[in-house]
Amino acid sequence: MKLAHVLVLGFACVLPLAASAQWQWVDNAGKTVFSDQPPSLDVPEKNILRRPANARSAPRVNTDAVPATGADAATAAPQPAAASAPKPTGVDKELEEKARKAAEAEKARKAAEEAKVAKAKADNCAQARQSKSTFDSGIRVARVNASGEREILDDAQRAAEVKRAQAAIDQNCR
């Protein structure tokens, strides 16, 4: 039970630190304004009562809007950031690195696939050329039919095989 009390007390002590990043200034109407955004450039430096600790030397951004006052400060739309503000570096670098590695892996995968296709085409080309040269040599060529018997190819069958081999050469030997 004591641990729970200590944690609640610690949380209560840390909670006000969230409000430390607040701006406080007096607007042209004499009202005190509290905001998490810096005042517009029309507010003189002498009217800025409090700045966040990390904004002491930061330049103010011209928002070209009337500063929100009172209850409107909590519901006011956030002001646009300066165009020259640097990007957050921690997550973006990791994301860019992951994207770069993924692109490199995809490029390597495509290159490997293209090499595999090129090798298959080269093998098919060599086999088709060898087959065509065998049929062009004039030697007798036999093949085994569906019933397991050897049959010698006649001239029409040889011409059909030469034509098929030439089509394979045309397709794979470019």
Rank of each mutant, 00 (worst) to 15 (best):
E104Q: 13
A146W: 03
P88E: 15
N145H: 00
K119W: 03
S137T: 01
Q130F: 06
A128Y: 06
P67F: 01
G90N: 09
A120R: 13
T89C: 07
V66K: 10
R140W: 00
P59R: 11
A159L: 12
L95H: 04
A76P: 05
P59E: 08
S133A: 07
T69A: 08
K163A: 06
E113W: 01
A77I: 14
P67G: 00
A115W: 05
P67H: 00
A82W: 07
V61N: 07
S84T: 14
R56S: 14
K110Y: 08
D92H: 05
T63G: 11
A83R: 10
P80L: 09
C125W: 02
A58V: 04
I139N: 07
A146H: 03
T89D: 10
P78E: 14
N62V: 15
V162Q: 13
A81E: 15
K107A: 15
A128S: 07
D154W: 08
Q127G: 03
V144P: 03
I139K: 06
A73R: 02
D64F: 15
D123A: 09
A115C: 10
A165S: 02
C125K: 07
A58C: 02
T75M: 14
A74K: 11
R143G: 02
L95G: 05
I139A: 10
A142W: 05
G70E: 00
S84F: 07
A81Q: 13
E96A: 14
E106A: 13
A167W: 08
D64L: 15
K101P: 04
G138L: 03
P52A: 04
R109H: 03
A81R: 14
I152C: 04
V117G: 04
E114S: 12
A128D: 05
A112C: 07
D123E: 08
L153V: 06
A115D: 09
C125V: 11
A122K: 12
V91P: 13
A83C: 05
E114V: 09
P86M: 13
S57M: 10
R164A: 12
A73Y: 01
G138T: 01
V141P: 04
L95A: 12
T134P: 00
A128I: 02
R140N: 00
V61T: 14
G90C: 06
A73S: 10
A112W: 04
K132D: 03
S57N: 10
D64W: 15
A102W: 07
K93S: 03
A120W: 08
A111H: 05
R56P: 06
A122M: 06
L95T: 11
T75W: 13
C125E: 04
A105D: 11
S131Y: 02
S137Q: 03
E113R: 01
E96D: 15
A77Y: 15
A165T: 03
S133E: 04
A74P: 00
A120F: 06
V162D: 08
K110Q: 12
A103C: 11
A65Y: 15
A58L: 10
A55I: 05
A71C: 08
D64T: 14
N124Q: 09
T134E: 01
A105V: 04
S131A: 12
E149F: 07
A108G: 09
I139D: 08
S137P: 02
A120P: 02
D136W: 02
A85F: 09
A146N: 01
Q166M: 02
E161C: 06
P88H: 14
V66D: 04
P86G: 09
A112L: 10
S147D: 11
